[in-house]
């Protein structure tokens, strides 16, 4: 089969963080880890091209994926593989997005990343196989990816035995009885001694490995973040009051406090009367600035980030988190205080 392989700017040899804005391009043949992958795939399959995109570009322009898939099809691609992305969040998101775009275009596709990679949950049912945590585990990660690719090329489903990871989609359908009738039936099952019966298995939440502490807040640059729908009065960016699909950033430079009439909350999940009367109740700029002036905080970030956490999908929230983390890293921020409503 004719295979197109997706990698980021780092593995394509363009550069690290400074090159993360690299625009999408398609190169002839295998590149970087694609060379070993091509060898592992054997003679039956050929990596005809390598799709490359900078992690920042991919994170900020979700349409990069459809465009690259289109180019890949023009090259005669019959299958698309992405990664391994290890634990790199933006790279993982990009891999997930491009395999989803490929699947939507009718191409078999799979990605490889570590189970902790936040991109895993973006793959929306498109197969992902497990990789190691870092590039040091490139060899076994590529071996697993190659084996899974051969199987997928053969038209087979990938399973946990192939190292498949990620959530299985839950899909709506009409039951024969109403939820109320099913609740009564479930209660009878439980009263009858069945301790397991349920329609919703208990969810497992992401395990987040806590970041190392800052040595001393007095030396740290700290950002203020919130999911309280916190915007300048009038909501110039039209941040949604529920089911947010975006986040906003606004400057705090020259401000000692966030004042009534200048900022407001557009959160649709609670009464905003208290927030609007005293915006520091959502974003504690007044006391944070005081602590900065007293030297207890090394410095406050020049802007705050906000979204609305009200019925927001976990997928969107995860994407905001990855984007915020990348932004804060780039701005050399060491710590963040996120107010949650």
């Amino acid at each position: 089969m004719r295979v197109v392989h997706y990698i980021n700017q780092f593995f394509a040899g363009v550069g690290g963080e400074e090159a993360a804005g690299t625009e999408p391009e398609l190169r002839e043949g295998p590149v970087g880890p694609g060379k070993r992958l091509a060898a592992l795939l054997g003679d039956e399959h050929e990596i005809v091209a390598t799709a490359v995109c900078g992690d920042d570009h991919a994170s900020e322009h979700s349409d990069f994926a459809a465009a690259l898939v289109e180019s890949a099809r023009e090259k005669g691609a019959e299958l698309l593989v992405a990664g391994p992305a290890f634990t790199s969040g933006r790279y993982g998101l990009a891999c997930a997005r491009i395999v989803v775009a490929a699947a939507e275009a009718g191409l078999p596709a799979l990605a490889a990343m570590h189970p902790d990679n936040p991109g895993l949950h973006e793959a929306a049912g498109t197969p992902v196989v497990e990789s190691g945590a870092t590039g040091r585990e490139m060899r076994p990660s590529l071996e697993r990816l190659a084996a899974a690719t051969r199987k997928l090329a053969g038209g087979e489903e990938l399973t946990a035995d192939d190292g498949r990871i990620g959530p299985v989609a839950r899909v709506n359908h009409m039951a024969e009885r109403s939820a109320a009738e099913r609740a009564v039936a479930l209660l009878l099952d439980r009263l009858g001694g069945d301790r397991e019966a349920t329609e919703i298995p208990l969810p497992t939440f992401d395990q987040v490995t806590p970041a190392d502490p800052v040595a001393d807040p007095a030396d740290a640059l700290v950002a203020l973040l919130t999911e309280g729908g916190f915007v300048p009065a009038g909501n110039p960016d039209r941040l949604e009051s529920a089911r947010a699909t975006k986040w906003v950033r606004h400057s705090l430079e020259g401000r000692d406090s966030v004042e009534e009439g200048e900022f407001e909350s557009v959160h649709g999940g609670f009464s905003t009367q208290w927030a609007n009367a005293e915006p520091n109740r959502i974003l504690p700029l007044d006391v944070a600035r005081e602590l900065e002036q007293e030297g207890a905080i090394g410095g406050l970030h020049t802007e705050y980030f906000a979204t609305t956490g009200n019925g927001t999908t976990v997928a969107d929230a995860r994407r905001f988190g990855v984007e915020w983390a990348a932004e804060l890293h780039e701005a050399r921020i060491q710590a963040a205080i996120l107010t949650a409503t």
Binding site: F205, P210, A211, W274, E278, I282, T339
Partner: peptide
Amino acid sequence: MGAPRIVPTRGIPYPTGDP
């Protein structure tokens, strides 16, 4: 929800306040 460091506050509508 997996947040590593949590400071509890008094109410959803005013995380850093108390009217």
